[in-house]
Design a binder for these strands. Structure first.
Lengths: 239, 239
DNA sequence: CGTTGTGTTGATATTAATCAACAAGTGTGG
DNA sequence: CCACACTTGTTGATTAATATCAACACAACG
């Protein structure tokens, strides 16, 4: 680990963004969207740079973004994938604490921190939604700490696939005969940086789960869960 | 990692508890304490069991507790250490999502979830405090994901020592001549389970940092930071 | 004093990273 | 339409980091 594990130059992403990430109720989303400037971000384009002054909050209305932290030498940890209704705004001492980059085409609402403060006073239910969202984030973060600290490579990949399978857009366009179709819009490098592994290890573990009959891999951007129960067992350290 | 890394039997801790952890303002703490049953928990005694029905919230008023998640085979990940003013209450579908155990003697306030709901309606500022606390937790959790996913053993131990050195009770009772005194109330196994390492690796890295002149280790329950700047550099992956 | 729990150190094993080659797409331009 | 470069993913060989296994040191405690 002292040497490089597919390091990125810490030069990558453009544009400012934010940091609390959470799922906010639809009604809040619309309320925010009406007050915000909307924006489209193309795949691969960054919209938050870690360390930049944090002026705004963001709300994703469609698409998937990756949120990541960098070490000075370019090692990267993806701390989460944000999809529709996710809320981004967290900062420490006025600076964004992670970067964000679009995976597919992302639509964003962007609005000032001042505005949020006013809204919080005006609509107490918004504060409650944000608290719920932050709590849900925290739960996910704690699960991820268990994964990163204590699970094997195979368990991590199995956990990841099970997590992706809980996305609402799952099972669409796929043969349910062969198993639940789970889209993987992100590349192997993103999966690796999310799971604390290398792309080679992710690839090997996917191949292995496939050989073991738990999944099949029709394309690089989707998997079929052939035995979700057993895959969940692997994810829980029982496989 | 398939084999045991100092596994714990998933049988350990007694008593119910909770899950959002955060630093709540002193005024809120007192407000809560007045409405809560207080309790003393002895070192090593558990007060939240992961998976138990989540009836209550807790607020620590003094002492240090460890919060942890377990895998079925006993692998453990400590997701954080909770000290005075930390708030615990997070649950998913009515179950606590992590266990908690006292490290030294812990004083707790305990109160029902119903009560918190009423308080949130009555005192909007409490909701704000909880949101701030949850946000701070989230920031810490994201830092920890970077640590667990991408830092080396040496970097993790350095990061841990720097994190502990930011505790308010730091520098007390120690010679500032030799460096900042950082108390480590938890055992090596707790440090290991927090950093995703084994006790042996933690011990070796502490010895190594000592040899390198960055720290010294007067007792097993404290270290002296001899060169905090360089230690921080190591923690940031630059050492 | 012996015993027990905790921490350290050494020898070896194992997992996942690194290094390297190749395969499969994808897009470009001749 | 095909040749080519370029990106992404897979697979194999080897290395390196950390886990495991084992022995020992030391302090607290009865």
């Amino acid at each position: 680990m002292t040497a490089s594990l597919h390091r990125l130059k810490p030069a990558a992403a453009p544009d400012p963004g934010s940091g609390i990430r959470g799922i906010v109720g639809v009604e809040d989303l619309q309320r925010l969207a009406n007050l915000a400037v909307t924006r489209t971000v193309r795949p691969g384009q960054g919209f938050i740079v870690e360390g930049d002054p944090a002026d705004c909050f963001f709300n994703i209305t469609c698409g998937t973004a990756k949120l990541f932290k960098l070490l000075p030498d370019g090692r990267r940890q993806i701390i989460g994938f944000a999809t529709a209704a996710h809320f981004l705004g967290l900062a420490v001492s006025g600076r964004y604490i992670f970067g964000a980059e679009a995976i597919d085409t992302v639509r964003l609402c962007r609005f000032s921190r001042t505005r949020l403060r006013l809204l919080l006073d005006e609509f107490p239910s918004l504060g409650r939604s944000l608290l719920d969202a932050a709590s849900a984030e925290l739960v996910a973060a704690q699960d991820q700490m268990l994964l990163l600290g204590r699970k094997t490579a195979r368990e991590r990949v199995a956990s990841f696939l099970m997590e992706m399978s809980r996305q609402p857009d799952c099972g669409t366009g796929g043969s349910d005969l062969a198993g639940l179709r789970v889209p993987l819009p992100m590349h192997r490098l993103d999966i690796a940086d999310y799971l604390g592994l290398t792309i080679e290890t992710v690839s090997r573990m996917l191949t292995r789960l496939c050989r073991e009959g738990l999944i099949s891999i029709p394309t690089t951007t989707a998997v079929l869960l052939r035995d979700p129960t057993r895959l969940q067992a692997v994810a829980d350290g029982l496989g």
